[in-house]
Design a protein around this nucleic acid. Structure first.
Lengths: 142, 142
DNA sequence: TATTGTTATACTCTATAACTATA
DNA sequence: TATAGTTATAGAGTATAACAATA
């Protein structure tokens, strides 16, 4: 049996590889799919994106520019502060991220099918405790 | 409560960010720490490394060269086939990877401390089932 | 003066194609 | 001919420092 730590690490690598593979099907990298995922329900500024992705603002400039050149996102100048840029998901970006999310959901669902239903419920509860507990300990809102 | 899929994804991102942060403390990227981790208990050829890391052989050339330039790994010509290069962990590489592994273990242990002991045992069993089940379904040996 | 975002620059990481050396 | 590895090249991703525009 795997140790606590090895198991968690291998599970993380496994889930990330599933996500990476689905992103690649749409010609997207992990960070690009993360960007689109964030924009599904938000319209952050460049600086807010840098915080959410834990990247330098200059890195976000390039990331957003490449996505914009592919028609996946749009830059919109803020109406209240002319220094600020709002980033929004374009129609094509929404199409791609929804398709990717659906495929990824299928992958994880298939993975979890290795467990009987009762165990899946238990796992969901434990994972939720870890993720929300970690976030609240850091004072981060999901 | 998070859904199955969201929970697994967020947990994966969380664990990966812990690993990435500890690697960065030693000036290493995620792929570099993965390389050193593989070399802890193996001396693969370049081609085997490409398979283990799921990278093209030309990518591995650069990766190993950069690690070698930093004194973390060594190239050794094979004695039986002069085309083949064996990659081994250098003393400094072992020092770094052991230190990183210890810090990462501490991080994950601290995370799992959010669960009571009985739940940790349950989680370990469920995660083990997922990881080993997925690997065996793909015919991959751990 | 401080903040927001971009630009210039340099490095890591990655893949494809062409190449060298060996089998 | 086939295989192992490297090189040449191109592009994505990242950070630091300097910059322009706005507050």
């Amino acid at each position: 049996m795997l140790s606590d730590v090895d198991g968690m690490a291998q599970l993380a690598f496994l889930v990330m590889s599933l996500l990476e593979r689905r992103a690649a099907e749409h010609g997207l990298s992990l960070v690009q799919i993360r960007l689109l995922g964030i924009l599904r329900d938000r319209t952050p500024t460049m600086q807010e994106l840098a915080g959410l992705l834990e990247l330098d603002k200059s890195s976000v400039t390039g990331l957003v520019s490449r996505a914009e050149a592919r028609g996946l996102v749009s830059r919109t100048p803020s109406t209240t502060d002319r220094r600020v840029v709002q980033v929004t998901l374009a129609a094509e970006g929404r199409r791609v991220v929804e398709a990717g999310a659906e495929s990824f959901t299928d992958d994880v669902t298939e993975l979890l099918a290795l467990l009987p239903p009762a165990s899946r419920t238990t796992l969901r509860r434990l994972v939720d405790t870890l993720v929300t507990g970690y976030a609240s300990r850091r004072g981060i809102s999901l």
